[in-house]
Design a protein around this nucleic acid. Structure first.
Lengths: 219, 219
DNA sequence: AGCTGTGAATGACTTCACAGCA
DNA sequence: TGCTGTGAAGTCATTCACAGCT
């Protein structure tokens, strides 16, 4: 009533919100207007109790005996996730991955737009990537200020990644998505999330390897 | 001594092994032959106790008072991760992302090679992607058998992903890396890992959004 | 009767702290 | 002395189980 709900939200819960959002979008597209925690859980690949607890951190959006109102819950989740406005992003590193991400429109409809792409390589500067022109990395401060960017995406080599991260922090970026296979060192308050496909493959390989070993053992 | 160490390894530990491997490769490249848990931890962005406990699940590879032998530990981790042999992978979905991953050589030196790329779209079948020729998805069983594939990579649209996963499971694949923004339903024993860039961005946006709110509150 | 919201119980992971070996 | 390896303690996350609303 008086103080707005602002408890500490578990990281694990936060990571599931985008998944719930996706499921709710599916339900909405299918014309569904109500969904129980069990139904949502089924779609999200978790269990009902988890859905209920996750959602309860944000408020009481459900109706006992009925379930959750799909459009309403979707709205609340979108609001919590900051999806009510657009997030301009800058990509640093105009290699294969960087250009592929810049051209890929799949994030735009999810609220993220790549508004700039940069590289240290002078020969790349000025080239077009879709509608964008590659700018020099040294212009980062200007670009970030001009375009009001708060999210930086690193798609450089591992060797260059820390320098780029330092530059980003320097110009005020506090949210970094890092595709380079490197552990970035950033000051407190700056959030880095790593995406490393090789690591994901290695985790699969670990289990695959053990599977083979276990099967050999049974024989 | 008698029974080989085969305790249950925490998932969190497994996910860090590839990172330790990367750090050890750096140390090795720099000519370092010994490293303490604290030094490794520094590079990996964790703390010393975690490194020691993680490694202790696999055996006692360190020397008290000295630290770990870099080449030896590297060898052991590579063995645990199944990096002593190559892992052939198949990509299903020859769109932007699929072709980009197929062309990207960055996993080959990490022990993974994309040996086949497939699609349902007849018009794509026969086209070249780097050294590979796109084959029709219906040939999955043949391709998997021929090339001894155990890891499948899904880069289709969300709508097609479950069907592809079903096909993969059908032909015996039990390790799937899923790039499609969809929750896959697979039988027990099949492992799916999801890579969803939009979700990562949304997690960053959540914190960014809260950061703004908190700062407003202070004023 | 049905389903949410949530304390309490359990389980997973991390960190502490130190015995014990080189 | 220095650093590992590991029980014990602490923290975070999941699941249970049920009171309480519709």
């Amino acid at each position: 009533m008086s103080s707005p709900r602002r408890r500490v939200i578990p990281e694990a819960t936060i990571a599931r919100l985008p998944i719930y959002q996706r499921c709710l979008l599916e339900l909405e597209a299918g014309g569904r207007t109500k969904a129980s925690s069990e139904q949502l859980a089924e779609l999200a690949g978790v269990n009902g109790a988890k859905v209920r607890k996750d959602l309860s951190y944000f408020g009481t959006y459900g109706t006992r005996g009925v379930g959750y109102d799909v459009p309403h819950l979707l709205h609340e989740i979108r609001r919590e996730l900051g999806m009510t406005h657009d997030w301009p992003c800058v990509i640093v590193g105009a290699g294969n991955l960087g250009t592929a991400l810049a051209k890929f429109g799949g994030f735009t409809d999810r609220g993220f737009s790549v508004v700039a792409i940069m590289d240290v390589d002078e020969s790349k500067v000025g080239q077009k990537v879709g509608a964008l022109t590659i700018r020099h990395e040294d212009d980062l401060a200007d670009v970030v200020a001009e375009l009001d960017i708060s999210i930086g995406i690193i798609t450089t080599t591992a060797g260059a990644a820390q320098d780029v991260a330092d530059q980003m922090v320097e110009v005020g970026i506090r949210s970094i998505l890092n595709f380079a296979p490197a552990t970035l060192d950033v000051p407190f308050g700056v959030l880095v999330r790593d995406v490393d496909v090789a690591i994901e493959l290695q985790i699969l390989a670990f289990h695959e390897e053990r599977r083979v070993l276990s099967e050999a053992e049974i024989v």
